Computed example of a mutant assay.
Amino acid sequence: MYMYWQPTECGYLLYSDAKFLDVIYAQHGEQFVEAYKYRDASDDTKENLYKFIHASTSVVMVVDCENCNPYKLYGVLKNLDPEDMRLVQKIILFDDYHTTIAWDYIEHMIQIPVDHIEVPRVTDAKSLVDIQMAVGVSKAYFKDEIDSFILCSSDSDFWGLISSLPEARFLVMYEYSKCGKAIKDALDSRGIFHCAMDDFYMENAGDLQKIVLKKVLEKYLPNVVGENGWELTRQIYSDAYITAGEKEMRRFYEKYIKTLRLKIGDDGRFYVAMNDWE
C-alpha cells in the first residue's frame, strides 16, 4: 500500500498511530476524529473488568438505554474475552420507545442472555426508565440475590441507587461526553471501578450498525417518492443514533439511496426496493 504525503518537520511520525493519523489528515485539510477505529482499552482496564466478574458470586449487566450508546456497548461486549463474559448471568436492558431500534437487535447478536424491558410512559413527556431501573436493581439484589452489577449509564442520578445499596458491588461504564467529573470523583471515593466505553475498539460494531441502517431505510421505503435523497440519508443516520462523517454518509447515499429502484411484486403492485445488503 502506498500513501502520498508531503514530508514536513513533525518529529517522530511513527511515534504512535494517533500522531501518524493526525499528521496525514492535517496535510489534507482534515481532522481525524475516529480514534475508536484503531485504539482499544488498556490491558489494565480489561483486567479490572475480569477481576470484578470473577470476584462476584453472581453478576448481571444493567443498561440504561436512554443514557447508553448501543453501538459502543456492543463494541465493548465483542471486544471482551468470551470465556470471562460467560460468567455474566444476563444483561438487562431498561428501554424507552423514544430510543433507537438498535436495542431490538443487539440482543440477537451476543452470547449473553438478554432481558429487554420496555418501560411504558404514563405521560409522553416523562420517562420512567430511571425509577424502573433502580427498582429492578434493588429487586435483583434483595430477591434474586445478585451481589454484583455492571451498570452502563452516564446518568449521575444513579449515584442515589449506588449509595443506597452499600453492600452491593458496582462497576460503572459510561461515555466521556455524558459523564462529569463529580460523579467520577464520587465513584473513586467509594472505591468503585469505572471506565469509558469510548476507550474500547469500536470498529467491530459495524455489523450492528448495518442492520439498524437497513431497518430504518426499510421503514421509509413506502413513502420515499418525492423525498430528497441526501436529506433522507441524514434522517436515517439520525434515527439510527449513528454519528458519522459526511464521507461515510455519502458512501451510504451512493450505495443504497441512489440505487433504489421500482419492482413489481407477485401481486402486480409496484414497490420500492433496495440493493442487496452487503
Rank of each mutant, 00 (worst) to 15 (best):
Tyr2Pro: 11
Met3Trp: 10
Tyr4Leu: 12
Gln6Pro: 00
Pro7His: 00
Thr8Asn: 14
Glu9Gly: 08
Leu14Ser: 08
Ala18Val: 11
Leu21Ala: 10
Tyr25Gly: 06
Gln27Arg: 01
His28Tyr: 04
Gln31Pro: 03
Phe32Glu: 07
Phe32Val: 06
Ala35Lys: 07
Lys37Arg: 15
Tyr38Gln: 05
Arg39Ser: 12
Ser42Trp: 08
Tyr50Trp: 06
Phe52Ser: 00
Ile53Ala: 01
Ala55Glu: 14
Ser58Glu: 09
Met61Gly: 00
Glu66Ile: 08
Asn67Trp: 13
Leu73Phe: 06
Gly75Phe: 05
Val76Thr: 13
Leu80Ser: 01
Asp81His: 11
Asp81Met: 09
Pro82Cys: 01
Pro82Met: 01
Asp84Pro: 06
Met85Trp: 10
Met85Tyr: 08
Val88Cys: 07
Val88Thr: 05
Asp95His: 08
Asp96Asn: 14
Asp96Cys: 09
Tyr97Pro: 12
His98Met: 10
Thr99Gly: 04
Thr100Ala: 05
Thr100Trp: 02
Trp103Pro: 02
Asp104His: 10
His108Ala: 14
Pro113Asn: 10
Val114Ile: 10
Ile117Trp: 05
Glu118Thr: 08
Pro120Val: 06
Arg121Leu: 06
Val122Thr: 14
Val122Trp: 13
Val122Glu: 13
Thr123Pro: 06
Lys126Gln: 13
Leu128Tyr: 15
Val129His: 01
Met133His: 07
Ala134Gly: 11
Val135Tyr: 11
Tyr141Lys: 02
Asp144Leu: 12
Glu145Ser: 15
Ile146Cys: 05
Asp147Pro: 08
Asp147Ala: 12
Ser153Pro: 00
Ser156Phe: 13
Asp157His: 07
Trp159His: 02
Leu161Pro: 04
Leu161Trp: 03
Pro166Tyr: 09
Glu167His: 13
Glu167Ser: 14
Ala168Trp: 06
Phe170Leu: 08
Leu171Ala: 13
Leu171Arg: 09
Leu171Asp: 06
Met173Arg: 03
Tyr174Lys: 00
Ser177Met: 07
Lys178Gly: 10
Lys178Asn: 14
Lys178Leu: 13
Ala186Tyr: 09
Asp188Ser: 15
Arg190Ala: 08
His194Cys: 11
Asp199Pro: 04
Phe200Ala: 03
Met202Trp: 10
Met202Lys: 13
Glu203Asn: 14
Ala205Lys: 00
Ile211Gly: 07
Val212Tyr: 05
Leu213Asn: 06
Leu213Cys: 09
Leu213Glu: 02
Lys214Ser: 07
Lys215Tyr: 00
Lys219Leu: 01
Tyr220Ser: 02
Val225Asn: 13
Gly226Gln: 12
Gly226Ala: 13
Asn228Ile: 04
Glu231Gly: 10
Leu232Tyr: 05
Leu232Asn: 03
Thr233Leu: 09
Tyr237Cys: 01
Tyr237Gly: 02
Ser238Asn: 15
Ala240Ser: 05
Ala240Met: 01
Ile242Pro: 00
Glu248Val: 15
Arg250Lys: 15
Arg251Tyr: 11
Arg251Thr: 14
Lys255Gln: 12
Ile257Gln: 03
Arg261Val: 01
Arg261Ser: 10
Leu262Thr: 11
Asp267Met: 11
Met274His: 05
Asn275Thr: 11
Asn275His: 08
Asp276Gly: 12
